Amino acid sequence: MRPIEAPDPAVLRERYPQVFERPASARLALPAMLLLVLAIFVFGLVDLDFSPARLVAGLRQLGWITLMMLPPDPGSSLPTYLKALGETLSIAVLGTTVAAVAALPISLLAARNVVPSVLFRFPVRRFFDTIRGVDQLIWALVWINVVGLGPFAGVLAIAVSDFGALGKLFSEAIEGADRKQVEGVRASGGHVLHEIRFGLLPQVLPVIAGQVLYFIESNTRSATIIGIVGAGGIGLQLAEQIRVLEWQKVSFLVLMILVAVAAIDWISSKLRFAIIGRRAVA
């Protein structure tokens, strides 16, 4: 076997000049981009008044507050805090459920395999994008001014915000469904509603259920945040205790939130695996 001869660099340079002789714009593009990013970063630090001295002083203050939080102590307010935690969980579950129930039928109109016409599908998709483009905290402030303070405003904020997000996810899940089952229903004489009911929904409902469970878990944290601005729940209690500097009660409330989120995460993961396992068996 003859050894492979090494190619002559001069021949290669002559044959492929675009590789060996890159234009100046291509050579300078990456350094220019890095300099631009660095300039934007430095400008942001200056514009936002970033100060290492303030950061060190803030860390000292944070350490002092952490010491003041120990040990966590609810005092005589434990029943109130338990009720507020239940209210937060109710806001998350009810808001997510309302959003899912409302988003499922509308998401069918945004799916390409259900509504082929882009004239009808495009406005629905942009409607979902518009709704989910507004943060839950902003929706909470809007609904507080509409219906007043309390958990009802929190439920509406989560429901409206998740309506847009779940509608987009549901429509994508519907578009990813297998067409063979739909074609089988059609071949047996079924009309459009039969195709959706017996061809599409059995495929996508396990995926939708998993998405809803994940949103319930996520909205438990979101319900705490929007409660701080007046939408009820344990977030409102947390804001009040921070305002009066009751740090031991603050740490107890934070601990309650962490335990509740961990429990919901464990329960939802078990339910998701059960749904996926049942789907695989089916």
Results as ranks from 00 to 15, higher is better:
Met1Gln: 12
Ile4His: 13
Pro7Ile: 02
Pro7Trp: 00
Ala10Cys: 13
Leu12His: 04
Glu14Cys: 15
Glu14Ile: 09
Glu14Ser: 15
Gln18Ser: 15
Gln18Asp: 11
Ala24Thr: 15
Ser25Asp: 08
Ser25Arg: 15
Ala26Ser: 12
Arg27Gln: 12
Pro31Phe: 00
Pro31Trp: 00
Ala32Phe: 09
Val37Leu: 11
Val37Trp: 05
Ala39Gln: 00
Phe41Leu: 09
Val46Glu: 11
Asp47Ala: 14
Pro52Gln: 07
Arg54Tyr: 07
Gly58Glu: 04
Leu59Met: 10
Leu59Tyr: 12
Arg60Glu: 13
Arg60His: 14
Ile65Trp: 12
Ile65His: 03
Thr66Lys: 14
Pro72Lys: 05
Pro72Ala: 01
Asp73Glu: 07
Pro74Asn: 13
Ser76Pro: 07
Ser77Val: 05
Leu78Asp: 11
Leu82His: 02
Lys83Gln: 10
Glu87Pro: 08
Glu87Asn: 14
Thr88Asn: 00
Leu89Asp: 11
Ile91His: 03
Ile91Gln: 13
Val93Cys: 05
Val93Pro: 10
Val98Asn: 04
Val101Gly: 06
Leu104Cys: 09
Leu108Trp: 05
Leu109Gln: 06
Val114Ser: 05
Val115Tyr: 01
Pro116Cys: 15
Ser117Ala: 14
Arg121His: 03
Phe122Leu: 14
Arg126Asn: 13
Arg126Ser: 09
Phe127Asn: 06
Thr130Trp: 11
Val134Tyr: 02
Asp135Phe: 08
Gln136Thr: 15
Leu137Ala: 04
Ile138Lys: 04
Leu141Glu: 01
Val142Asp: 02
Trp143Asp: 11
Pro151Leu: 12
Ala153Thr: 05
Gly154Arg: 01
Val155Thr: 02
Leu156Tyr: 00
Ala157Arg: 01
Ala159His: 03
Asp162Pro: 01
Leu169Cys: 10
Phe170Tyr: 10
Ala173Trp: 01
Glu175Asn: 07
Glu175Trp: 01
Asp178Ser: 11
Arg179Cys: 07
Val182Ala: 12
Ala187Arg: 04
His191Tyr: 08
Glu195Ile: 05
Leu200Arg: 07
Gln203Asp: 04
Pro206Thr: 03
Ile208Phe: 07
Gly210Tyr: 02
Gln211Leu: 13
Leu213Phe: 09
Asn219Lys: 02
Ile228Cys: 04
Gly230Cys: 02
Leu236Tyr: 09
Gln237Tyr: 09
Ala239Met: 13
Arg243Tyr: 06
Ser251Thr: 08
Ser251His: 06
Ile257Met: 07
Leu258Pro: 14
Ala263Gln: 08
Trp266Pro: 11
Ile267Leu: 15
Lys270Arg: 15
Ala274Met: 12
Ile276Met: 08
Val281Glu: 07
Ala282Tyr: 14
